[in-house]
Computed example of a mutant assay.
Amino acid sequence: MIPSWQPSCSLELIHLRAKLLHEIRSFFYAQNVLEVETPILCQAVGTDPYLEFFSTSQLPDNQDSLYLQTSPEFAMKRLLAANTGSIYQITKAFRKSESGRYHNPEFSMLEWYRLNFNLQQLMDDVELLFSHILPAKFFSEKAQRICYVDVFHQYTGLNALQFERRKYQTAAVRLGFPEAEEVCGDNHTTWLDFLFSHIVQQHLGIAGICMVYEYPACLPSLARLNLENPLVTERVEVFIQGIELGNGYYELTDMQQQKKRFDQEIKLRQKIGAEKVSADERFLAALHSGLPDCSGIAIGLDRILMIISETDKIDDVLAFPIKNA
């Protein structure tokens, strides 16, 4: 049999992707934000306990494996520490075992960093970019901005900052997810991720753009803690029609605090049996040298195309999704 060779998506969508990339580059050029390029194949990878990654087999002249990047974040921050100024990148990223309606193991990402921007200014920036690349119907009113604690309580009735397992379990049963108890156990972070993704997220951005900010401190990633309320972090996620499009931070610049987070994540990876990794020492050295005050965000471009083209699954906007690659 002759294998299927034709692209999975229409030629119209291939042209639409090219138009989207042009509009993004035009936006950042006008804003004097520098386009950069960083390696996809690197010697270190992130420590997030719940991200699986692709690695090479051992190379003859290299004692260690190399990794396909799950994000260009560490490399871009090394450039920021080298005084590039505000930067952006359109690149490919790779995450193992991610395949489904909104996931392909290889996907396109837009990531950018603005010097001297706080989280509110970053959200302004997101809204401005989206006004250039999304249909006008998403801007009948300003983007909704709501803090995590408020939206979590609105749809679950729970306090996201105060973990009481019995209350969380009761709420999960009431909301139709009795299996949450077995999945989440005593882990507050896992409870928040489970309840947010299964109960809250579907309600976000139904009429337009929704930005959820100030995540609980147990979900910090690479964001700094809020100075006025250390129980929350300076983190934001962007949603349209219940689809998560982006994740951004007022960036943590403290090397010691970042190293401590890496160590905690590495221990958790060991506990849950995830593949062993080491902290990215080059990234930590860049933080030690001095990361300028900045905010940054990563946006999934394939999901943006789904929104623009009103398609139902990510395969519809990819020329060659994994099943046809």
Rank of each mutant, 00 (worst) to 15 (best):
D293A: 15
K142V: 13
Q258M: 05
A172W: 07
Q169M: 11
S289Y: 15
K142Q: 13
G242V: 08
P39Q: 02
D193R: 01
E281I: 10
H198A: 11
P220A: 03
L110W: 04
R224D: 07
V36H: 01
G248H: 01
S86M: 08
V183N: 14
P49E: 02
K96Q: 13
W191F: 01
I307W: 02
T70S: 11
W112I: 00
I322A: 11
L161F: 05
I40N: 12
Q270S: 15
L21I: 09
P7E: 06
E12T: 09
C9L: 08
A93M: 07
G273N: 01
L268Y: 10
D150Y: 07
Q31A: 12
L161S: 06
Y249P: 03
P7H: 02
T70G: 10
L231R: 06
K19N: 13
L128R: 14
F138V: 06
K96E: 13
D150L: 09
I14F: 03
P60C: 05
Q256V: 13
R224H: 09
Q264D: 15
D61M: 13
N247M: 05
V212P: 00
G290A: 05
R269N: 07
I133E: 07
M109D: 09
E281Y: 12
I272D: 01
Q241K: 09
N187R: 09
L13P: 00
E12P: 04
R95G: 06
F196T: 04
I14S: 02
Y215I: 02
K276Q: 14
Y213R: 03
T190I: 12
E127W: 15
L110S: 02
E228H: 10
Y249A: 02
F54H: 04
